[in-house]
Design a protein around this nucleic acid. Structure first.
Length: 463
RNA sequence: GUCCCCAUCGUCUAGCUGGCCCAGGACAACGCCCUUUCACGGCGUCGACAGGGGUUCAAAUCCCCUUGGGGACGCCA
């Protein structure tokens, strides 16, 4: 039997990190077992569903590298299928028409709540033998007693008393199917073998199992992954602080790093922290999932991202930083130059945004270098300027300008004059880079080249 | 209120078929080293088995209770 998983977002917002993690788990699980990963758009809430959100979710999935098999399935296009299944339930006596108004049902619930019980519909239309009619809904004729039991892949043994469940609505008065009905029908018809979803759905599971039973259909395996909580340990949701995946994209995060971080939240493989997508596929088999909720830690995400950023080759990184360079008006005209500059900042930055900003400082022509006033005042002293002046001449006269050549020129100047390297480095650094921090001087000069290096020093001397 | 789930350092976690754990790794914090700066890196410090009962020769690991946290109770998904 081939494994089939599915991710089923509702297009009422952008894809947020909780959903992204669930999607990643589903995708990984299917990949690991050589199965299929399907996508289903749960857009039956006509009020809140929007096409733009569907587009956004799809785009985020692609960005994350979690591509699904075939075309996504839209629930709104499947009302015929749902009605067919509802008719079957009606015919088999597992469902019935109900004429109770929402107000009446709400009153029942209030009453039950007041009496300290579980709010539920009392099933008063069950024996009425009603047929279809305006304002009427179809409800499941749930068994009155017994227990619903299932083995969850992460929670283990879970049991519910059916007395806790009520006769849920299957078909709304407007003819649209309800969530639980649609999910079950879809999972059956899509041949889903493993339902992996958020913890917040465990309570729906017994209701859905009742439907599988009423439909006499085989049940999938369930895996309820714990929620992601905010740094404050409060629930993270679309309406409460959950950042959308696209925001991370804009922040310069690497998709593989986001997936790495998200998956590690609630899953582990020994002490390993950094995983490539390939490793994730190799190791993720649905076990080692944690059963408790995890708090989102932005700092660790950043660290993971930095690790992935450093692991990439300059060639691989170049096309990925380019959009960020353009965004800060430092478009890269010289790929070879950019390729030499990237490695200088890989150990010094943790996002593409930071990388682009750092690169900008070296990509600029001499005339546009921005000097940090405090650093200039501190290091470009008369004495410092003198060092820069002489050094500039020496650099200009170099036949070769690779890192070693520059390094030797620099150090021979220091030795020739009986100086300490520390005495000349700060001035040269500010003159060259405009500020007090940054990469190795010889490396930086070799990267931007002799002409620009000399021009930069000259510019600094004119300050 | 009722039901379901969960409970190891501030955070993510290893460990949970009991002894190798007076609990390991990672992020963060702090310190030292490396060093032309800023980083990277290396080394180290701080820091947890929620509490109480059992079971056992032995419990972070098994059972119960308490407490705490989360989720769900819709003609939302």
């Amino acid at each position: 039997m081939t494994v089939v998983t599915r991710f089923a977002p509702s297009p009422t917002g952008h894809l947020h990190i909780g959903g992204a993690r669930t999607a990643a788990f589903c995708w990984l699980f299917a990949r690991h077992f050589g199965g299929k990963f399907l996508l289903r758009i749960e857009d039956t809430d006509l009020e809140r569903s929007r096409q733009e959100y569907t587009d956004s979710i799809l785009a985020s999935m692609i960005w994350l590298g979690l591509e699904c098999e075939g075309e996504p399935l839209y629930q709104t296009k499947r009302f015929d299928v749902y009605n067919e299944y509802i008719d079957r339930l009606l015919a088999s006596g597992n469902a019935y028409w109900c004429e109770c108004s929402p107000e009446k049902v709400e009153a029942m619930r209030e009453k039950a709540r007041a009496e300290g019980g579980k709010p539920r519909y009392d099933g008063c239309c069950r024996q009425k033998g009603l047929g279809a009619g305006p304002g009427r809904v179809v409800r499941l004729a749930a068994p009155a007693t017994g227990r619903v039991v299932f083995e969850d892949m992460v929670k283990g043994h879970v049991a519910f008393d059916v007395a806790e469940l009520d006769d849920m609505v299957l078909r709304r008065s407007d003819g649209a199917p309800t969530y639980n009905l649609a999910v079950v029908v879809d999972d059956i018809t899509m041949n889903v073998t493993h339902v992996m979803r958020g913890d917040d759905h465990v309570n729906n599971t017994p209701k859905q199992i009742l439907l599988y039973e009423a439909l006499d259909a085989a049940q999938p395996k369930f895996a309820h992954v714990p929620m992601i909580l905010g740094p404050d340990r409060q629930k993270l949701s679309k309406r409460h602080g959950a950042k959308a995946v696209i925001e991370y994209e804009e922040d310069g995060l690497l998709p593989e790093a986001l997936v790495n971080y998200l998956v590690r939240l609630g899953w582990s493989h020994g002490d390993q922290e950094i995983f490539t997508m390939e490793e994730l596929v190799q190791f993720f088999d649905g076990t080692s999932l944690n059963s408790s909720a995890a708090a989102f830690d932005p700092e660790k995400l950043l660290w993971i991202n930095a690790q992935h950023l450093r692991a990439l080759s300059a060639e691989a990184l170049l096309p990925r930083v380019k959009p960020f360079l353009e965004r800060i008006e430092a478009p890269c005209a010289d790929d070879a130059l950019a390729l030499r500059v990237i490695p200088l900042f890989q150990p010094r930055t943790s996002t593409l945004v930071e990388l682009a900003e750092a690169m900008k400082g070296l990509l600029l022509p001499a005339a546009e270098v921005a000097y940090d006033a405090a650093a200039v005042a501190k290091s470009l002293t008369p004495e410092g300027r003198e060092h820069v002046r002489v050094l500039k001449e020496r650099f200009a006269g170099l036949a070769s300008f690779d890192k070693d050549a520059v390094h030797h020129a620099l150090h021979s100047y220091v030795e020739d004059n009986g100086l300490k390297f520390k005495a000349v480095a700060p001035a040269l650094r500010v003159a060259l880079l405009g500020s007090g921090g940054g990469p190795d001087l010889a490396e930086a000069m070799a990267a931007i080249g002799q002409e620009v290096s000399v021009a930069r020093l000259e510019k600094a001397l004119s300050l």
